[in-house]
């Protein structure tokens, strides 16, 4: 069953159109990756789902329209968002950064903190450290942790591997898989690193200049010569 349904979604920055009539579904309990180059519209897509851009078309979560909803209402309905470049609060501790994400999930705070500390033990060790003094990998963990603090059913992650070392990318991939397998979370990620997406996602979609140009499993997309050369390096 589709947890997220997107139908004829277009997004705009003033008069400029950034997304053109996107239609796709995200099945519950799956990891879906949206692959594309810089400026393809990946971040705009996630911002649009979160109600942070001007859009046209339909976005439904579990059958309920969320197109015109405010970001805070979308989070309450069960969507967590880890934006690109972490978007943290630099002079706050790790713990306070996480707690900002828990504003809408008052009852689950301790349970969610426990879960995040199990997923990222380093965050528990450094919970009183300001994020400004953390490494890129640690900040990405805080960003993911903050998104998880609202007890989401759907997690949106914008370019989780950008600027990170290969070892940290593997750690992030492992956590995203655990979120799907152990916590039944549905994950939609955007990626420029197509090989990371291939290793992780059941379904991959390719975005070019705001248009959805291909969709399929890693095997299906790898067999397309143009896409393989452009995105998968073979």
């Amino acid at each position: 069953m589709a947890l997220l349904e997107i139908e004829n979604l277009s997004a705009f920055y003033g008069k400029a159109q950034a997304l053109h009539d996107l239609t796709f579904n995200v099945e519950e309990g799956s990891i879906i990756a949206m692959v594309g180059a810089n400026g393809a519209g990946k971040s705009t897509l996630l911002d649009s789902i979160m109600g942070l851009t001007q859009t046209k078309g339909d976005i439904r979560l579990d059958g309920t329209p969320i197109t015109a909803a405010k970001p805070q209402d979308i989070v309450v309905k069960g969507v967590g968002y880890a934006p690109e470049r972490f978007n943290l609060f630099p002079y706050m501790t790790v713990r306070d950064n996480l707690l900002v994400g828990a504003y809408t999930a008052r009852e689950d705070i301790e349970t969610n903190l426990d879960m995040i500390h199990k997923l990222f033990p380093r965050l528990e060790e450094r919970e009183n450290q300001e994020t400004v003094s953390q490494s890129g990998g640690e900040r990405q963990m805080v960003s993911l942790g903050r998104a998880l603090m609202s007890s989401p059913r759907l997690l949106l992650v914008d370019e989780p591997t950008i600027g990170l070392a290969p070892k940290v990318c593997l750690e992030i991939a492992d956590v995203l898989k655990r979120l799907r397998d152990e916590f039944s979370l549905t994950v939609l990620i955007t990626e420029q690193n197509a090989n990371f997406a291939l290793s992780l996602a059941e379904q991959i979609m390719v975005l070019e200049s705001g248009h959805l140009v291909a969709s399929g499993t890693s095997d299906e997309l790898s067999s397309d010569e143009r896409l393989a050369a452009a995105y998968f390096g073979h």
């Binding site: 942070l52 805070q72 979308i74 978007n87 609060f89 630099p90 998104a147």
Partner: peptide, 11 residues
């Protein structure tokens, strides 16, 4: 520190 991130966190 980061108004956009506050909004994206559901506040």
């Amino acid at each position: 520190m980061n108004e956009e991130a506050v909004s994206g966190s559901g506040l």
